[in-house]
Write a protein that binds this DNA or RNA. Structure first.
Lengths: 254, 254
DNA sequence: AATATTTAAGTGGTCTTACCAAGGAAGAAG
DNA sequence: CTTCTTCCTTGGTAAGACCACTTAAATATT
């Protein structure tokens, strides 16, 4: 109906593109309800399964949301256009956080080891500056600044290892977890003693690299991630407890 | 039980999640071809439109790709995310091979450690089979078969570590260096004793994992890569010697 | 015998029809 | 007026059929 020659273009893609275009242009605003699938399919000149496949695509992009018996609506989150598969996976499968931390533990401890072995004077000067800002910013309450300084510090260590793979890998992982770090650190906000523990851990790593003690640096880095890991597991456990408490409360009110 | 939060349980979502999980865990590897939609729908116990909707979701996420008349394939986007930047760097700058081996040393020793810790009976059975073929094929002169068996063996170890990042990372690196392995091994062709050394190294790793001795496995794996590293450096040195010898010869003739 | 062409089987893409389940609104009962 | 029932609309799933494309085996050609 729509096209005499579909050629290599899938109709569902064409429909999805058309809908996406309408949403972006504003003719379909956030909160709007789409016509029923049957009517809309006729209107667009395609079959209902084809329309549904197009809707699935946009739903997985976060642009649409369907309620059984209710209708299909335009969501208000237009920012989720480009999805990094790993990013999606991380939020979808929380068990991956454990794997990710395990990987970081390996990567960063090795980076610290090599950095302690190979760091030049330039590297150490950079580390000194970054550690200074890290230490000063840890005294403030600015969470974002802390995260940025933390990332920069670890990235500098990775680059001081003078291995391009470790450098790139660390950068990739840092980019990947940048959004999740806040989750894994926010529970520290009300715990000053843990805050100080992190501070001293960074100090140990920094000094070990400065004094070219590879084993100490690797061990300290390993312990550092292990600490974050334990803190996160505790946070998760507490969250579960709160959740089940809420559930119990709900059951009583029912 | 008035209302539960995940009230809407769409089958297509369940299927999509199942597929995503399989891709993530590696049972569906990059490049793999899915069964035909008709067969796969029966296998999963759902209808074909439902399966298609699930595939649409994952396609829009970039995890799957369908070719009309050809089939549906698992993309390598998860791995490409990490590997892409290195592809041309590695081929352009041979000096990076040293970095690569260093990275492998870290990655594979950690994989061996975790595999020795976590390998299930199924994992060990797979390792047994792969080691058997590896050992038998090492007796032949078939270099390609040796490389394939070697890659499969190390990949199986990485998957036995039960860490999706380590699994994908190893797969990426293996694919990345597949063409380079021949370079790093061809010099062994005329050296039977080194051939036997590799064989015994593999045996040590294999047994350590079977007997759940993480430290032994990690150490053996580390030594294994170190051996390859030394061999390659020697080979490079010999190549340089031959090259400079040729140059000297050229100077005399000029 | 090797190569180019044809053919047939298999696969994804689309459509039609039908039925089920969840939501919502109109109407009936209190 | 409130509450409950009923029924229609809507999205979700299933099954079968046909079309378009790819692939590879079978055939014809050289």
């Amino acid at each position: 109906m729509i096209q005499s020659r579909p050629a290599v273009v899938r109709i569902s893609d064409t429909v999805a593109g058309e809908l996406e275009k309408r949403i972006l242009e504003g003719s379909l605003k956030a909160g709007d309800r789409l016509p029923s699938e049957r009517d809309f399919a006729v209107e667009l000149g395609v079959s209902r399964p084809t329309l549904r496949e197009a809707i699935q695509k946009l739903t997985s992009k976060g642009l649409l949301a369907s309620r059984h018996g209710g209708g299909t609506f335009v969501t208000n989150r237009l920012e989720a256009h480009f999805v990094d598969p790993w990013q999606e996976m991380l939020s979808g499968h929380p068990m991956l956080h454990s794997d990710l931390l395990e990987f970081r533990q390996m990567l960063e401890s090795q980076a610290a080891y090599l950095a302690a072995e190979r760091a030049t004077n330039v590297d150490i000067e950079r580390l000194d500056a970054l550690y200074a800002t890290l230490d000063s910013v840890y005294g403030s309450k600015d969470m974002n600044a802390c995260i940025d300084a933390d990332v920069a510090f670890h990235q500098a260590i990775a680059e001081a290892a003078h291995n391009v793979l470790i450098g790139h890998m660390t950068a990739s992982l840092m980019r990947l977890i940048h959004g999740h770090v806040s989750n894994s650190l926010e529970h520290l906000h009300a715990r000053p003693q843990r805050w100080d523990q992190l501070r001293s851990q960074h100090y140990t790593i920094w000094q070990a690299i400065r004094e070219h003690q590879p084993d100490v640096a690797a061990r300290a880095s390993r312990d550092h991630i292990e600490f974050v890991r334990q803190s996160m597991m505790n946070a998760n456990k507490e969250a579960e407890n709160r959740l089940s408490a809420l559930r119990r409360q709900g059951e009583t009110t029912v």
